[in-house]
Design a protein around this nucleic acid. Structure first.
Lengths: 314, 314
DNA sequence: CCACTTGTTTGTCCTGGACGTTTTATTGAT
DNA sequence: ATCAATAAAACGTCCAGGACAAACAAGTGG
């Protein structure tokens, strides 16, 4: 029986690499010029063709840079060294139960057992309630899936399947919680360069679980529009999410700039991986260090206004 | 009292225009070279700054090109002429009731009455059922919102609000329908260049309503992965969605190419605005002309296999 | 130990050219 | 006149190589 080469991954054009890795074409070219990596082959026209292994390596590099490494520190290294660096950033402080649960859910993902995956997620949600479900299961799973993906342990469709299923579960919960209309009124969204959905979805659900009225406008909202919409809609809080892919320096800069544009009566909350451990005291901006922090923020907002909602959880 | 200039829309850099209009930076530059439009100002460094009016015009141009106009036909025209052309493509064959309903929902959107919007959508869904809700309300609303956006009648946050709310409603419905596991097993996704979510979401819900087992992998899935995943997961059908932004010529070419990669035992269905009126007979590919067509396809699939599911609707 | 200055790193933008592919126009045969 | 084949135009994407500001790191002096 002949070996089947169909699945041997074909070399990619620069536009495909951009889509796959999120690295701009300009960046890919300038890295090649400066660091001699990536070093794609050329087709008969002199156009770049990136071998699959280089694209894989670029994915790892992208992730390391997202976590704070500088290009000059990662663009010389080989794949082995890069994986060592990857290990150094995965600070999993999970309980034994949590990591076991993550592993079994990841296994369902790898086996394409979508129905079981959905069922399991729903069971956990029903057993533990929305809040614990999000904080103790969804959040760790997100990073576990991200890690597994960059290590090549799960494929793109598997990662997509995960995102879809979690979205279904969370949006189902959000839709069920509607009818809550306690304060504060929270507007949820992201800046134009931030595309990650799951973050705001988790926060939206958490806020509703706390009896606060949260509304999501999805990702990638122009800054001027955020300011305008929040003012017109008499929101009490604007909450923004920043994934690890958002350079944390930029996040702080953009937040400060946005704070000046935003109605001073509206609070500004910001959270996400990019702001982890960056809890600088910024005037008028609350950095949400982790998801559990949210309920404290809501509580303190209510205490200050003496508007303790009767709907809030005991 | 001084006039407030804060809201006068500031000129945009080329990267922002790319994000806003979906036109690649290279394309914007080459249009300027060839057609003298857009003609951005320059900052002190000679970098392009696109005035807001030109970006607005680019949005209209983008939409016209998506609907089949050629660049040379639209890049000379002024805004008035472009709007005339826009009118010529909006072929709204809606019933009086439908257009009235669209109008009132759009009004809720413009007034930022998110709670009422959600409530109204839920009421319609409860009254008419999932199938009619999607076909007679969501689908027309999608195009109405798109039209209103390009005309400047609704803003970006309003359009995002719409998308979020519809997603919540549809995913809630999808999650509720789970437990169905009739045939055919349908895998839903899009090609890598296609980012529109709502299309597959509507189809996913519709298929479930017909008692078929549909699973979405979201948008932008690499072609090789679609073929592999569908084979491994013993799917009967792969269904792909193509928005108006997908050049229809490309859609047909990519479909043909994909058909050869895909397991011959798996059917290939394709639909969406890009394929409207393009119902060429392609071997091994079923073009889904509109949403109502789906139930017929499912029925005919079952007839052929004599697998009429007991769960199918009367 | 902190504020400030200097040098290096890094991403984005620029120009102008080129080529393959798709679309349109033209030609010729039935 | 209809249709197929061919030539011409239109169009998007890629390339090279240079430039500059902003972010960052390192060194300096209080």
């Amino acid at each position: 029986m002949m070996l089947d080469f169909e699945d041997s991954q074909l070399p990619m054009r620069i536009a495909e690499v951009e889509r796959d890795t999120g690295l701009a074409k300009e960046t890919l070219r300038v890295w090649e010029r400066r660091y001699q990596f990536p070093k794609p082959e050329r087709d008969e026209l002199g156009e770049r063709l990136y071998p699959f292994t280089q694209v894989e390596q670029l994915r790892v590099i992208r992730r390391l840079i997202d976590h704070g490494f500088r290009p000059s520190k990662v663009l010389g290294k080989n794949l082995g060294q890069l994986h060592e660096m990857l290990d150094s950033i995965s600070q999993s402080s999970l309980s034994l139960e949590q990591s076991g649960r993550c592993a079994s859910l990841l296994k369902l993902l790898r086996l394409h057992r979508s129905a079981d995956l959905r069922q399991t997620l729903n069971n956990i949600l029903a057993r533990e309630g929305l809040k614990r479900f999000i904080i103790e299961t969804v959040a760790p799973l997100n990073t576990a899936v991200g890690d597994a993906w960059v290590r090549g342990e799960i494929s793109v469709p598997e990662e997509h399947l995960y995102t879809e299923q979690v979205q279904n579960v969370l949006r189902h919960a959000i839709q069920s919680q509607q009818g809550v209309d306690g304060r504060p009124n929270i507007l949820l969204t992201t800046f134009p360069d931030e595309a990650h959905q799951l973050g705001i979805l988790m926060v939206e659900a958490l806020c509703l679980a706390e009896g606060a009225n949260s509304l999501s406008l999805g990702t990638r909202l122009p800054i001027a529009d955020i300011a305008k919409y929040s003012q017109d809609g008499s929101f009490d809080v604007v909450a923004l999410s920043f994934s690890a892919a958002y350079p944390s320096q930029n996040a702080l800069r953009d937040l400060k700039q946005f704070r000046e544009r935003l109605d001073p009566n509206i609070e500004l909350w910001a959270g996400g991986q990019a702001l982890h451990r960056k809890d600088k005291r910024l005037p008028g901006i609350r950095i949400v260090s982790d998801l559990e922090h949210i309920q404290l923020l809501i509580k303190s907002w209510r205490d200050i206004r003496q508007l303790d909602s009767s709907r809030s959880v005991a």
